[in-house]
Design a protein around this nucleic acid. Sequence first.
DNA 1: CGAATCCACTGAAGCGCTTCAGTCCGATCG
DNA 2: CGATCGGACTGAAGCGCTTCAGTGGATTCG
Lengths: 358, 358
Amino acid sequence: MGRPTLDDIAEQAGVSRALVSMTLRGLPGAGDETRRTILDVADRLGYVPNAAARSLASRSSKAIGVLLGELHNPFFADVVDGLTGPFEESGFHVLMGTGLHQPRAERSMLETFRSYGMEGVVLIGPQLDEHSIERFAAHVPSVVIGRVLRSEHVDVIVNDDRRGAAIAVQHLFDLGHRDIAHLDGGSGPGAALRRRGYVDAMRRLDLHDNIRIAGGDFTAAHAAAGIDELLATRSPTAIFAANDVVAIGALERLAGVGLSVPDDVSVIGYDNTSMATQLRIGLSSIDQPRERMGQLAAALLRERFDGRTLAAKHILPPTLVHRSSTAGVRSTTQLSTQRRSIIDQSSPAVNRNLHDHH
Amino acid sequence: MGRPTLDDIAEQAGVSRALVSMTLRGLPGAGDETRRTILDVADRLGYVPNAAARSLASRSSKAIGVLLGELHNPFFADVVDGLTGPFEESGFHVLMGTGLHQPRAERSMLETFRSYGMEGVVLIGPQLDEHSIERFAAHVPSVVIGRVLRSEHVDVIVNDDRRGAAIAVQHLFDLGHRDIAHLDGGSGPGAALRRRGYVDAMRRLDLHDNIRIAGGDFTAAHAAAGIDELLATRSPTAIFAANDVVAIGALERLAGVGLSVPDDVSVIGYDNTSMATQLRIGLSSIDQPRERMGQLAAALLRERFDGRTLAAKHILPPTLVHRSSTAGVRSTTQLSTQRRSIIDQSSPAVNRNLHDHH
DNA sequence: CGAATCCACTGAAGCGCTTCAGTCCGATCG
DNA sequence: CGATCGGACTGAAGCGCTTCAGTGGATTCG
């Protein structure tokens, strides 16, 4: 005999299947004694409901899917931490799948989600083309984190990548740096905007001629190559990396060629992941409120379930976390510190702390 | 109208539902032209099979579940990397869930897996009590990674934690260290054995009096506390940490109190995760073949599907990866380097490399 | 030329559950 | 005292699929 079914319980308890179904789900209908009998029998038999049958009959799966780019970047872990709590609380099961940063794999994972009847889906930093995402979201409520979309159907939660990039550049500028290069994140989520933010900021600071972009992927390996590329001409005094992973790749490579941070060159990352703290030399970084983004995603999905049909866009403010990988330019004539700022000072974007909420 | 069903396709293609079902699954039965028609209609309608109905009717879900302790430790990510490939190739969907290191949450996740009819489950570093795991495994083929079990039913893949601990201690001993402390991983997977391995090794090296164990969890915070605990009496010259996360917590704390690594104290971790490389100061660590463990898990599950009923145990050998966080004792009389070894030299356990596979 | 074989295809049962229209019966009410 | 009502419970339909025993016509075989 395989798994016990409702019928097995019904038979042994001497009642109908329908009553067992209702009782097991906590609905009223059974008398006290009957209820107890049913519960007892179910327990004795080790009954576990068949989710497939349940979802087929009720047309609801109580499951939500989370698409992750990859497991190695702690960014994803933090967002997921924010997600799971709220969902578990409201009785949803959270199942995750990886897209491996490959559109093909992502598409197939989404199809799996859909075929499993997931009631909602959270895409964290998807690489998939906008059209595919939009088509998918037309069928199942979706919220995208960390990637801007024009779409009408999809809820989006991002941080303001351009602003974050500007904050990073301004930070380096304030420290006296003028030769500020960018290590690019290629097609990674947010990379394009951070690149744009970098270029804009440099322009606005009249540093147009110093704009240099190297690298081209969200991996440490490409970061190392990017460093080599930069050094081939001359070493910049500061580097703004597209994210922490890239920044750390840069740190390694710089150490490899004998340049010290921050003495020879300052480095700032993006995301403020746990990696930034864990380095012996703390990595300055731009923080996005990752856990809050996860919580927000849960909330948005709930709203969708409750009937909201207009797409929501949430753009959260990034903040600077200053650690020891950025410092003033070492030697030379201290540049005039005429307070030049391109950052909108109205909202609090700088957060000078070292005691990170771990 | 909701999602299109087989009946919708059947009707529009002018054939029976059964034929559509077979054709869409690539089975023979339909003529060339009919086949093409069916495929066309399905495509036009944007048909996505209903996994619930499918799994209900066929009694097979083609899904396997992966239970992760948490997403923050790159150890899990590496194992998962080994897993996904083989499974995707053989047409299985890999769905993951987190247990958050809480037995309660793990149990509930397993129940979810079972209720979804997962055909196999991989538990990575579960904290759950052995009995619960065993009971679960009696129902669905399971393999446990990173945790030893006595069970008859469960396949187990571990590395030899005691041996790994011995290798670590021996390594420090060979560098001249005698005052070697252990930062404990508490109830984390493998922690108990590593602790035991440490104690055994110390005894066999006649260092019984120097045995000191502090800390007590697989987190950086506890590691810091553990360091303080050690320093309260005296600083050891070397520390063997229960895993890399703990080791990194230790590094931070040591830096915080002004002790330099490896000059004042050597530190070695366990797992050889990417974190070990990413530190500016490379963390020496004991490597477990994580990706291979994942691949092996896939293979074991496949064997189970093919009928194997006896439990398999795989104990993989750990190896030493020497980086810059461990070095010889700084000052004092260089201790007699009479070659004393407690490690079985027959198998290659030392792997002195710095160029890690990415 | 009738039987056997094969191919393309159909019909119906049934997977384990939810849902909903009833049924039955004792208590309550006017 | 008959009508009414609500609580406890049942029966049957049906969710979207797979599976399997057929069916019927064309082709091949002896």
